[in-house]
Each structure stands twice: as C-alpha cells, then as structure tokens.
C-alpha cells in the first residue's frame, strides 16, 4: 500500500510555515541567553509609599489577590500535580482560583507547570504577552526554575526566567500540591505589597 501524494492536499505550504517557526525559535533563543530579572520593585516600596493611597492600595490588592485566574500552560509532568491541586481533594477554589482559563486574555496568573523547550518558548512568550496587566508568574517545579534534570539537554530552556519574568519559584520534581498552595500564598502576600504609585 502506498501513501498518496500529500503535497497537493495542502492549500498552505507546510515547509514555509515550518521554516518561519524555526526562524522565530532561533531569534528568541539568540535574544534570551541571559535570565530576565525577577520583578522585585516592591522590596523598597515601603519607602516610597504615599500615605493617602494606602487604603486604595489595600482594596485594590485585596481584590487582585483574592481571585487570581490562572491560564493554561501545562507542558509536562507538573501539570498533573496542578490538576490534582485544582481537583476536589486539595481544592484550589479555597483561594478563589478555581476558574482556569483557556484564554490568556482572561487570566492574570501563569503557573508554568513543566519543562520548557526552545520549540515551545515562543508560544509561552506569546501567551504571556497576551495576558492583561497586572500579571504574575509562578514557576512550578525544578524544570521551570532551572531546567531540572534536563538542564544539560540541547533542546531545553534552562528556566522560564529566560523567557518571562518570574515572581515565585516553587521547588520540587514535581512539587506536592501543598507546596504549590504555599507558593500561591506567597504570591498573594507579594501582591498585597504592591502600590499603584510604582506602577508605570
């Protein structure tokens, strides 16, 4: 049995699409050889905080941290610990997070659950860019922090911080659901310290 000729079936040129994708990956790889700095402006915020705005900050931050909506970014193993965290036993909805969005435009938190490869990196960057401000990132698991046991591989990005700024790192391979919940609590504490003054 012979496979029929495929070339005529496509109305697009798949080789052209592949080539363009390859160029995007190489460009991103070349431009992200150094990790991005972690967002830590809030550390010296105490000094600059305007007295009149504290209660506005408190209300805004309370609203922001109490209903974080995570976006789907589930490349690998950690995804199943995240799904278990969201399911009935660990019940992420206790933190107002049960709405997991398939569309990045409706989300404000990215939980990066899994190994990132250079081929996937442009897509993750695009998902991050599509999320509306303000937005935060939790790097879940060893692969997301540094590449984990795959760090020396030819196709793996050594940590999401090469592509997107990361707020909270949750170690483990994979982290237990309790560890992830603790990471989320840290994320909420961090959001509570934001001030609208420092936002540009």
């Amino acid at each position: 049995m012979e496979i029929e000729e495929r070339a005529g079936l496509y109305i697009y040129s798949d080789t052209q699409l592949d080539k363009e994708e390859g160029e995007r990956i190489e460009a991103l790889k070349a431009s992200s050889q150094q990790p991005l700095p972690d967002p830590d402006r809030w550390l010296d915020e105490e000094l600059r905080r305007h007295i009149l705005l504290t209660s506005v900050d408190a209300v805004l931050n309370w609203a922001r941290r109490s209903s974080l909506w995570p976006v789907v970014c589930f490349p690998a193993c950690c995804a199943f610990e995240f799904i278990t965290t969201a399911a009935s036993r660990f019940d992420i909805s206790r933190f107002g997070m049960e709405v997991i969005r398939g569309s990045p435009r409706q989300a404000d938190l990215m939980i990066t659950a899994g190994t990132l490869t250079w081929k996937m990196a442009p897509q993750v960057r695009r998902i991050y860019d599509q999320m509306a401000e303000p937005k935060w990132v939790i790097a879940m698991g060893a692969c997301a922090i540094s590449g984990g046991i795959f760090a020396s591989s030819y196709s793996v990005v050594p940590g999401y911080s090469r592509i997107i700024p990361v707020d909270v790192y949750v170690p483990g391979c994979p982290p237990r659901p309790e560890a992830l919940l603790y990471g989320i609590k840290l994320m909420q504490d961090k959001i509570a310290k934001r001030s609208i003054i420092t936002e540009v």
Binding site: L9, Y10, I11, F74, T117, M120
Partner: peptide, 28 residues
C-alpha cells in the same frame, strides 16, 4: 499537553490533518 495539529477544514469538515510534534522534546 503540547500537541499541535494543523487542520485543513472545509466549513466544519476536516479535510486533512497534520500532527506537529516536538514541543516537549527534552532529549531524554
């Protein structure tokens, strides 16, 4: 996970599909 399909459609009917792999190729 990270599987990708390029689907060629006629209205809602699938004419052809091309799977694209490699978004989780870790070089094991």
């Amino acid at each position: 996970g990270v599987f990708r399909m390029r689907a060629t459609l006629d209205g809602e009917v699938v004419l052809d599909i091309e799977p694209v792999f490699g978004y989780l190729h870790r070089g094991i």
